[in-house]
């Protein structure tokens, strides 16, 4: 259990360090003390201070929000669905939220607040259609949940296709959403964050409350029930919180994929399956990864600024390949086709 303690102890300093790197990378070292002072009066007196306060800080906050929500939702989904590939991005949640939001904005001209509601509804719709397709098309003997992930991929493809078609149908407003739809952390989306942050906070609060019963469910539904856990209620509440939280993250800055898939796999070897410890660890790790991805997106191809979603897709896709290889294709636990 030493590993767990070390990981949790190290998580906060690492998060602080990454945050500092994200905020101050690119400034000259001599300027930094003066810039820190800018936080105190919170008023930009120079170009550098304006960049820090009105670009870097909003980006950092958005990255932390998206990263932590996706990562904790990923942990919860992977535990409940019992599938190492489950995550908001792989189960159609992100694509559904994006489609509903774009459809609402382009077809019904709804404002930002209602767009958030549309994203939440879309997240639920995406998740439900993923499960429905898996039920409809799945094999009887599918102990590893392969068809669930496959139907998630199919549902995502369909929803992303519809989103793109909708965007093409309205060339004038297409450019508003073009970078959003790939998943882009941008200082311009801080208004959306200010409007939707409470949804994510509520779902994380729900995770904290449910952490212990969820861990009991991990031992088996019967055992949890005998320990006094209302298994169906707890599972449904947790999944609902995970789906809605990720929906709100999509509403803020578009579908940032794969953080929710990758982080649980980083956290688990250190912290174990107990959600009481895994959730805080995932919170910090997700935030760190999103900050790093955003830093890479911003600086790697200077002067171009990439979409953060691209960076996470690239890294996450590789991890996805590795997980499929290890989990479904290693000789010991090969799928019984």
């Amino acid at each position: 259990m030493e590993k767990r303690g070390l990981f949790l102890l190290a998580a906060l300093p690492i998060l602080a360090f990454t945050l500092a790197a994200h905020l101050f990378y690119g400034f000259r070292p001599a300027e930094i003390p003066g810039l820190i002072a800018a936080f105190l009066h919170f008023e930009a007196q120079s170009y550098e201070e304006a960049v820090l306060l009105f670009q870097r800080v909003p980006r950092s906050l958005t990255a932390i929000y998206v990263g932590s929500i996706s990562a904790t939702s990923g942990v919860v989904l992977q535990s409940l669905v019992r599938n190492p590939l489950a995550s908001p991005a792989t189960m159609g949640v992100n694509a559904g939220a994006a489609m509903f939001l774009v459809a609402g904005a382009l077809l019904f001209n709804i404002g930002t607040g209602l767009q958030g509601a549309a994203a939440l509804a879309g997240a639920l719709a995406g998740f439900l259609s993923c499960v429905a397709v898996a039920r409809f098309a799945g094999r009887q003997n599918d102990p590893r949940g392969l068809s669930l992930i496959l139907s998630g991929a199919l549902v995502s493809m369909l929803f992303t296709g519809i989103t793109n078609a909708l965007l093409l149908s309205d060339p004038a407003r297409r450019s508003d959403f073009l970078s959003w739809v790939i998943g882009n952390i941008n200082h311009a989306y801080i208004d959306r964050l200010a409007m939707f942050w409470w949804i994510g906070a509520a779902s994380i609060a729900a995770f904290i409350v449910l952490a212990r019963p969820l861990t009991l469910i991990l031992f088996g539904a019967e055992k949890a029930a005998s320990a006094g856990v209302n298994v169906p209620l707890v599972s449904r509440a947790a999944i609902l919180a995970a789906v809605l939280g990720s929906g709100s993250a999509v509403a803020v800055c578009g579908p940032i994929g794969f953080v929710g898939l990758v982080v649980p796999h980083i956290v688990r070897p250190f912290v174990g399956n107990n959600l009481v410890f895994a959730l805080p660890a995932a919170f910090a790790t997700g935030a760190v990864i999103c900050l790093l991805a955003d830093l890479v997106a911003r600086q790697a191809l200077h002067p171009y600024v990439l979409s953060t979603g691209l960076v996470t897709d690239l890294l996450g896709g590789i991890v996805f390949v590795v997980i499929v290889k290890r989990f479904y294709l290693s000789p010991s636990n090969r799928e019984t086709a």
Binding site: L146, G317, V321, E335
Partner: peptide, 27 residues
């Protein structure tokens, strides 16, 4: 042993990586 659904999943994964790589290349 390339039968079954896992190869489809693997193909989709490779496709994702390559398409985001492609979006990088466009720059």
């Amino acid at each position: 042993r390339s039968s079954g659904l896992s190869i489809v999943l693997m193909g989709i994964a490779i496709e994702t990586v390559l398409s985001s790589f492609g979006s990088l290349l466009i720059l």
